[in-house]
Amino acid sequence: MKLLKVDNLTKRFGGLVAVNGLDFYIDRGEILGLIGPNGAGKTTVFNMITGAFAPSDGEIVFEGTRITGFKPNRIARLGAVRTFQLTNVFHEMTVLENVILGTHHNSGIGFFQFLHSKSHIRKKDTDALEKATKVIDFLDLTDQIDTLANNLPHGQQRRLEMAIALAVEPKLLLLDEPLQGMNQDEVRDMLSRIQKIRSTGATILLVEHNMKAVTNVCDRVVVLDFGRKLDEGAPTEVMKNPAVIEAYLGIQA
């Protein structure tokens, strides 16, 4: 069953067409890779799905709801939760505080919460704490639970980002180049964690530049070039397509 469906998605910046009539879908429980050379429009597609900016044309449907042009927080509340290309954590907060904020919208703590009595909040806070501890444990950050995010090494900051996203309890997890700026070991670690998240039944959209790294984890890939869909299918099949090879080599040469 289709969790996300993108139909004729188009984005124009002035005269430039960054994404042109793109169609694709994601089934529940699969990992879809959105790949392509730099400047192919991957990030633009990602930003439209997550609501950072509105498409010029086309539709995005998530779980049967048309989310085109929704604000990022609304899309996240519907269950499509993103991470960022550049590390994005609450730097001056501890790991625990970071993840607790991730649980916020499911916690039932209201907008005018500071007006409520303390005991009312404490009960809900305990639930949030429990949830957060579980996620932190899942990503092996328990030893760092009281460390300020700013003081974590880069690899752990990326894991913390993932933990914040998971704390929102996403139906669809959107990862924006999670391997960016990582060394070999960190890449291997991150890939195994993505597998682990997947084994819990999550659906993942993975935007990635590094094609070889994702062939191992993705069930299916969509290849973008110059804002259009070049190919779609199983990673090994797509890799054989001469047009895809050329797109990659053409840019890198």
Partner: peptide
């Protein structure tokens, strides 16, 4: 919690939005 969210927004509004 409201104060914590204020603080979060001042550190990263994009991340605050992305968690709903």
């Amino acid at each position: 919690r409201t104060g914590m969210i204020f603080w979060a927004i001042s550190q990263s509004e994009s991340l605050t939005e992305s968690i709903g």
